[in-house]
Amino acid sequence: MVSSIVVRAPAKLNLGLSIVGRRADGYHDLISVFHAVDWQDTLEIAEIPSGIEFTCSLCDGVPRGPQNLVFRAIELAFQKFHITRGVAARLQKEIPAGAGLGGGSSDAAAALRALRRLFNLQGDDDSWLLLCQQLGSDVPFFWRGGTALVEGRGERLTPLPVDEKLWFVVVVPPIHVSTAWAYGQLPRPSGGNQDYRNRIQRLRAGELSLADFCREIPNDFERVVEAVFPRIGEIRCALEASGAISARMSGSGSSVFGVYSEQQEAQRAAALLPADCLVRCVQGMPSSSDRKL
């Protein structure tokens, strides 16, 4: 019998992001392409007689108690499946918090995957996605991973058939951008970027390579965020000058990424970036059905 499970929780990049409208509940509808990359947290969950024990290392800026999404995911699964045993969860963070990379949401999805295997929990994919939705807008994407068209608050997912491997230089400057603040700065939504929608459809149909798709991708947050935090724009321009196919913020920031066809190009660009920024060269990852936990 399995007594402990180790799972990886990847980061994601927004390959474009367009705000469609504002909902009656105060949330915004968006359209974006999420792309999982191999910058990963590690979560170990072990069975214990009772209760929930949670520890976290390298967790600057991350809640350590019941407010952590891993803890909340475990509580939610325990309630739904009436689990009477306990678990000890140990999270090792690598993905920085508050950078637009989805680390907390990915950790929550990883916790659910680990619990499903540890306790042999049942349920089809749709029922697990509904559970993910209760934890946060981005959590359903991380249940599947890979590359997906994401719509609504993040609950509507359409997997995209992307096999192409690109390299990304991800830069996290020492700047915190509040997601709530960034949404509050947006102008009135105008229904979303139609050219972006068209390019997504061409990518979905196999008429556009991922590299060509990335050449022209919008992020509606860039203008308002870079107006207050100009250094983010400077980093983005530096990535473009290094030869990147394109350079964009991920989510509402503060992370910025450049897109490259070759690993050597990405590594050369990464070496030129400011020393006070966290810089990683990463590659895309397949969906969770195609990879190990």
Rank of each mutant, 00 (worst) to 15 (best):
A211Q: 13
D212A: 10
D212I: 10
D212P: 06
F213H: 02
C214L: 07
C214S: 14
R215V: 05
E216G: 07
I217V: 13
P218W: 07
P218L: 06
N219S: 02
N219A: 03
D220H: 09
D220Y: 03
F221W: 08
E222K: 01
R223S: 12
A227S: 15
V228S: 11
V228T: 15
R231I: 11
E234G: 10
I235E: 05
I235N: 05
R236Q: 13
R236W: 01
L239R: 02
L239I: 10
L239H: 01
E240H: 08
E240N: 07
A241I: 10
A241Q: 14
A241P: 06
S242L: 11
S242P: 12
I245S: 03
S246N: 15
R248L: 03
S250W: 01
G253H: 01
G253F: 01
S254I: 07
S254G: 06
S255M: 05
V256P: 00
V256Y: 00
G258D: 02
G258H: 05
V259L: 03
S261E: 15
E262I: 08
Q263M: 14
Q264D: 13
E265K: 09
A266D: 04
Q267F: 11
Q267W: 12
R268V: 09
A270M: 04
L272M: 13
A275D: 11
D276P: 12
L278N: 08
L278A: 13
V279T: 11
Q283T: 13
Q283K: 08
G284D: 03
M285D: 08
P286T: 06
